[in-house]
Each structure stands twice: as structure tokens, then as C-alpha cells.
Design a protein around this nucleic acid. Sequence first.
DNA 1: TACTAAAATACAAACGTTTGTATTACGCTT
DNA 2: AAGCGTAATACAAACGTTTGTATTTTAGTA
Lengths: 347, 347
Amino acid sequence: MVTAATPAYHGTMGTGRQKQQRITIKDIAAAADVDPSTVTRALQGSERVKAETRQRISALASQMGYVPNMAARTLVTQRSQLLGLVVPDMTNPFFAALARGVEEEAASQQLQVLIRNTDGNEVAEREAIQFFLELKVDGLLIPMARCPDAYYATLSDDIPLVHVNRIDARHHVSCDMAHGTRAVVKHLIDLGHRRIGFVTGPSSPAQQPKRNGYEAALQEAGIGVDKDLLLHFDGSLACVEELADAVIRIAPTAVFAWNDVCAMGLIRALRDRGIGIPTDLSIAGHDDIALAACYDPPLTTVHWPMYELGQQAVRYLFQLHAAGSGFVPAIPAPTLVVRGSTAAVTR
Amino acid sequence: MVTAATPAYHGTMGTGRQKQQRITIKDIAAAADVDPSTVTRALQGSERVKAETRQRISALASQMGYVPNMAARTLVTQRSQLLGLVVPDMTNPFFAALARGVEEEAASQQLQVLIRNTDGNEVAEREAIQFFLELKVDGLLIPMARCPDAYYATLSDDIPLVHVNRIDARHHVSCDMAHGTRAVVKHLIDLGHRRIGFVTGPSSPAQQPKRNGYEAALQEAGIGVDKDLLLHFDGSLACVEELADAVIRIAPTAVFAWNDVCAMGLIRALRDRGIGIPTDLSIAGHDDIALAACYDPPLTTVHWPMYELGQQAVRYLFQLHAAGSGFVPAIPAPTLVVRGSTAAVTR
DNA sequence: TACTAAAATACAAACGTTTGTATTACGCTT
DNA sequence: AAGCGTAATACAAACGTTTGTATTTTAGTA
């Protein structure tokens, strides 16, 4: 047998490596004249290998352009060092902030975060989860989950799974969503409004508290919930035109929109129809996206502690890993941000 | 049957979730009384295994809750079925649209897309690339790359890599960025503007053509480039205030802003200072994000064919895989979208 | 010098797939 | 019934790591 072990360095003519030849731990072992296991340990910085050898090996590794093979590592360790994050839409600044919190916290535990969008589609969500399962991620984070709870229940044995803002789930980290919406509606009531429209959004169990807050505030003020004042936003900006027409028809003095984007679109569409904001009508949004402060008028809205939610969710995940049970995440409440799009009632 | 299947976990007894033994292909093989290789082939739908057996095996697989192990597959096939997409910021609707195109096209080839954000940070970009390398992705897509070209050159042997909108790169798919910016500046010139400010953004080789277009349009119209009319946007909305002050100081009749967000912030800040848009000053943006049409006034801007760029980039990648060389992507040019934020010069 | 504990390293068996090759089973033809 | 081509399946060797255990080396002691 010919010894094929040597990876045949091709003319290393000064310029650095040229050969596209996967360098493995074995190659390094051969070059350093040690066993592959020693290379592994050296690269891990194990105390078990002599400092000098460690030094020599890692020098060799970077010099040879060694790139560890995650697949092999995952296979043997049964840990991928990966966290899966399943979000409806990363374009939404709201989820972007959450992802930020997740990534930050995960990094502190040497974990990488993988993100998949679902477009709020239930089927896509399942596919994303399935994908992460195959990838053998070490944990799954699902904000605003769309599927029925039973589905996640079947999963929770396979993999640690934490929901965000889904209070009916087994493991979840949530802020008091209803608190924020209650505050904004109360704010409108305090301004003298009585006919307050509410634009609902894509329905999902995770979003239910939003509506509860609206109703709670009205009831606290002794105002009945009028079904006629409910409108619906399908998430597309095209929809704001008919929304504007509907608002004119039902003639509220204030509208609490599903989110900031919806509020902005609505303001523009209403202005096109000759309705001044906030002079003729007050409009509040939700989420407090970056542009909310930049709109004209600046948007009154609800700010969510998304970054913190992301952080806490990751911590919760670790508790689950450690078989701990009673983790109580500390989440600040959403806060009302009063800006220029709401004003005292004029009629 | 011996208990060899139990992988003897340390501790964790009691509180946590109980150990589930993952189902492997071997388990299915045992249950179906066939060889593991037959299971693999059955699951792949290979003609080599009898239809009835195939049927039986896949029934068994789903019944037993089998989840394929990507790591093992990747290890042996040397293909991860994964595509890496490295973007500065997925929050940017612009990159979101690109990702959409990439995902769509990749899906048609049974590939999954993994996305990593870099925040426009060069170090983060390298880390992201390194990460993807370890993950053994089948291809790398990098729009608006930040690092010097030499860096990517060293990579291109290891992995197929396609840039988006980076014309100095070896393999790239780009639209004629300068064309869009030239069109918008020409539009302003046609409206009678002569003093046209330009707000630059985070510099990167990929963004150079944007500025070239600005200068080209001026030169074509016989207007000199006045360095005093150049401003800078650092990407944060906080920056618009000082930007507004600067605009007032240098007193252009029109401003071409780095992007739509910048334009919106600037409009609001200028209004706060008593300057009407577009009556006193015209402002154009870039990117044509969804909210651009919803702003008040609706933004004149440049629409990019990002979705198409994403698609074409993936196709290019496949050409590279197939060792084909002369792929010429067909990319529509960016188009000018005239809305309400620009008007004829009044002074 | 012989002996031993500790340090350093080597060995070998996994991890869960895939795939080329070898083997068996089956249905024909003669 | 022997022979044969093919269909169906089994075998076995990878892929690149990690890690428990065995072995060697080293240095320190008696």
C-alpha cells in the first residue's frame, strides 16, 4: 500500500495556500506527528496536552488553513451549538430587536443563532421547526407562535423550546401585552375620547392579550365594547385605503391601530381624504418602531421590551437545559409613548 | 434486546424532561427487518428498493417519529444543502427583499438559506463567513460586502461565493446602481434644481456607484460637483437633527438622501425647523421601502430590483458549482419612482 | 538503579448517514 | 432443472470529530 496519508502540499510558493484540499484534523496530526486526538485536545486548549505541543499544533492549524467541520463535531457531541429562532418576519423591527437580544445572550454562551421567517404562516412555521430539528439545534425560540399549543407539546420532549409572548404555552417568556394596550386606550379615554376604534391584525393566540387590553380599558372606564368599532388590518399596506374608508364610515374620534406601520398608512390615507391628524382624529400605534418618532406627526405608540424578552428567553432555555424548573423571567412592562398623533377630543 | 440503546446521560434525573432516545435509521431498519442502507434508499425514494418495501419503511419512519440527522448526512455527502447569506442588516427592507429572492430560488433547488447579520461591521462579516465555512454551506452570498476584495479572493477556492452589487468582485451579480442615482438626480435637475445636496452613507466599496451616479448626472448637466453640498448620514436616526441643521446652513434647493429612512427623518427634522417639503426644498430617497409610499409627502425614491438580484445570485452560484464560467445575469435597472417629496424649484 | 506517580500522548470506538460493491432471491428461458 | 439476467437487498467502508481508556514517557523518589 502506498501511503496516501500525506495531503501533498502543492508548491507553497510563498503566496500562501492555493490548494483547495480539505484540511482535517488528521492532516494536522500527520504534520505535527501526533495523534488526531491530541490535535483535538490541543485545539480545545485542554490542559492534558503539553503547552508547547498545544502551541505548535495551533500554529500549524492556522497555517494550514484548518476549518473545523461542524457536522462531524455535532455528530459526535450531539450538540450543534446552534439556537433556532422562528419569527414571522424579521423585517419587522420588533422581531429584529428581539433577535438582537437573543443573539447577544446566546453569544455569551458560545451559541450561534439561526433565524427563519415564517411570514406568519402556520405551515411555514412547522417547516421551519422541522428544519431546525434536523439541524439538531440545541434549543428553539418561537415568538408569536401560530400553531395550536398541542403541536408544541409533542415537540417539547425532543428539544428545549421556549415561546415568547404566548402565555398559554408550557414554557414561555412574555411581557404583559395587555398592559400596554390598556395604557394606550386609557390615554385616549383620558383625552376625552369615547368612540375608540380598534384595528385588529392577523389573529394568533399570541396576540389575544392585545385585544383584551383594549376591552379592559374600555370596561374600566365604563364604556361598552362596540363591535362596530372593530376593524381589520391584513398586514399589507394596500389595505389601508379601505381601512380609511371604513374609519370615515364608522366615525370614531380615535383609533388604536394594530401597529405603527398600520397607523402610518392610515394617517396618510385619512389625510388624503381631508382628515387631519390629530386635529380631527387621534391615532395611536403599537410597537414603537424607529420611524414612529420620525413620522409627521410623531406617533403615539406602545414600546415593547423586545430586547429584554429575547435575552430572558435564552436564559429560560438554559434553565430548561439544566433541568431547572422554576425560572421566573423578569420582564419590564410595555410602556406608553405619547407623541403627536393623539390629542384631546374636539367633537 | 440489550439496553445498549440507552446513551447513559449523566445525572439530570428527576426534574427535567425525560430522556428520549432519538430514532435513527438503524432503529427503523431493525423494525422493518432490513438493512440500514435499504432504509436510506427507501427514504430517498430510490427505484432500487421495491415499492412495497419503500412504502412500509416510510410509514414506519413517520410512525416512529424519525428525524433525519443533518450532521451525519452532511458528513458523508460533503454537502449541507445550505446556503449562507451574509447581510449587513435584515431589518432593512431592502435586504429583506433580496433574501426573499434568494430563498425562493434556493428552495427550487432544495436548498435552505441561512442568514447572518453583520451590522455593516467588517469583523462581524468575517466571523459570519467563518461560521458558514465551518457549517460547510454549499455556497455563500454576500451583498454589499465590506471587506477588501483580497480577502474574498482567498476564500473563493474553498467555496463558491457570489457577491451582490459589488462590481469589483470576481463573481458578482449587480444592478446598475449608478443608473438609479443618476436618474433621480437628473429628475431633480429637470425640475430646475442646481444646488443639489447629497447625503452619503456608511462607505463601502459596494456603495461607490451610488455616488458616481450623483456626480455623473451633475456633470452631464454641466453642473460642477460642489464638495460643500456633501453631507454624511451615519445610519442612525439620531443623526438627522444635525443633518437638518447642516442642510439649512448650506441651503441647497434639493437633497438626495442616502436612503428612504434618512430622507424621512430629514423631512421631519426640517419641518420642525419650519421648512416645507417639497415647497421649500425637494428631498429624494433611495430604496423604495414599503413606507415610502405612505409617508407624508410620499417619497420620491429609487426602486431596486432586489428580489431579482437575489434570484440571479443563486443561479449564478449554481453555474459556479457546475464549473460553468460565462453566466451573464439579467438584471433590470433600478427605476426612479417620482412621488410627492420633490417639486420644481421655487427660488 | 529500580520504582512509581503523574504527565503526555496514543488507541479505538463511537456518532448517523450514504454509497459502491457483493450477495441473495426471483422469474425467465431453454 | 440448470442457467441466467435482473431485481432486491445486505455488507462494509467511509465522512471528521470527540472522548474514555490504555499506553508510553517523564520526572521524582527511595
